[in-house]
Write a protein that binds this DNA or RNA. Structure first.
Lengths: 233, 233
DNA sequence: AGAGGCCTTTACGCCGGCTTTACGCAACGA
DNA sequence: TCGTTGCGTAAAGCCGGCGTAAAGGCCTCT
């Protein structure tokens, strides 16, 4: 499941550190999280393990040809690729675009335009819907895109706080989420101590989801630590 | 709907005949069928009745602002738009891209590069099947092309704001659209807090569409979050 | 000038979610 | 055995969000 919550991740591939330093504040100002890679092989590794939503790629890399990087990426992912290059030769552009790049921006570039092209590239990903990341556990199904919860085929109505709580558990399914984490994310940093909230709302969730607190099959209590949603298929 | 057989149709929007004459042989050589439009209103008409797979748009049109054309198109179609313009100001590019354009090429341009960018734009919407431009849910029918809303066969008259609101819900049918999204898109960024607008207009929509607020069959309320149009098959 | 449509704004009743309090229970250590 | 601590459940009151009606102002069209 692509847990596409939180900030949008942008993978910046460039071997020049000054370029990365130049981009970082501008991307951060837009609320993006910037991931760096200085070589082609590193780019492929980061694209795979960090799953960025968009890739900014310089063609002049030390270890691989830029077009080869594009082709390698396109073998398994359709993440938008915006090429950022000093090469202005038309054949370079054509090669990069036909290899699967989504856009081609020449250096030097205006930051505002680059950000606009980034937004345009991100739109493509959004529009084409993609697979709905639906979480399943037993007869529970949680669709984080549609904000829909089903239990044994029946739709379950949740209040905002209830849903937020369940969403956090789903996003960390199988792992323990501490009480502090839950309280901070749902009720805000001012209520990280109000564990009573948790007991009340976990109880409401269990009731609506048909889970028995003494023998829970969905939401497990880790005493003194937090709660865990079973991630079994 | 869009029986995408035969050659790929490219809509070229430019008021200068010599540009269109210049493009025609190159597009024909690639096997494209070229449709022409010399004004913004003609562009909107051709986009609707010829259903091109991609649109090449010049921003300097005699009757309408180029960005308005993009916005008007994006109200009902996701056909890729490649802007072709002599304007090189950064703000022009940003405005066009953020209005929904997929790419921005400055004149003069190299034909090879333009064709490559055209191919890149076409790739985006390739996998995306033929989108039905008329939305159905129960006995409600919304035709985003003709800007027409029918309920149980009867035409429904909507005010501009009412229509915008319904259009957004249709474009995200099945998914929850947050109050902020709706307010920003319909009333502008300055009114993202005026949730009262939403309650009034959602109420008007429900009344005109014959939906009961207490037991809604069309427009569902997600308390504290937003609204959702049921996307029943 | 007049009429009508549309948007904005105000007022109000209602319902439900959130918070808070209270209490029972089980586990654990002294 | 008793006290302590943490967990689960029930219930009550408050507050805010939601839906509805309606009035006033602005605009356009006649």
């Amino acid at each position: 499941m692509t847990g596409d919550k939180g900030p949008i991740r942008v993978l910046v591939v460039d071997d020049e550190p000054q370029i990365r330093r130049f981009l970082r504040p501008s991307l951060a100002a837009q609320g993006y999280e910037m991931i760096e890679a200085a070589s082609g092989t590193e780019a492929l590794a980061r694209a795979s393990d960090r799953a960025p939503q968009v890739i900014l790629l310089d063609l002049g890399l030390p270890d691989m040809d830029g077009v080869s990087v594009i082709r390698a990426l396109r073998e398994w992912t359709e993440t938008p690729i915006v090429v950022l290059s000093v090469r202005s030769r038309e054949t370079d552009k054509i090669a990069a675009l036909d290899a699967g790049a989504d856009d081609y921006v020449e250096k030097p570039f205006a930051m505002g335009e680059l950000l606009a092209r980034l937004r345009a590239a991100l739109r493509h990903r959004l529009r084409q819907g993609g697979e709905a990341p639906v979480f399943h556990s037993g007869d529970l199904a949680v669709d984080l895109v549609r904000r829909e919860v089903n239990k044994a085929g029946q739709s379950v109505k949740l209040s905002p706080k209830e849903y937020d709580l369940l969403r956090l558990l789903v996003q960390h399914a199988g792992k323990v989420v501490t009480q502090r984490q839950l309280l901070e994310q749902v009720w805000g940093p001012a209520h990280v101590e109000d564990t009573q909230y948790l007991r009340v709302y976990i109880g409401q969730l269990r009731q609506k989801l048909g889970d028995d607190a003494t023998h829970p099959a969905l939401i497990l209590t880790e005493p003194g630590v937090g709660y865990r949603l079973v991630s079994e298929a």
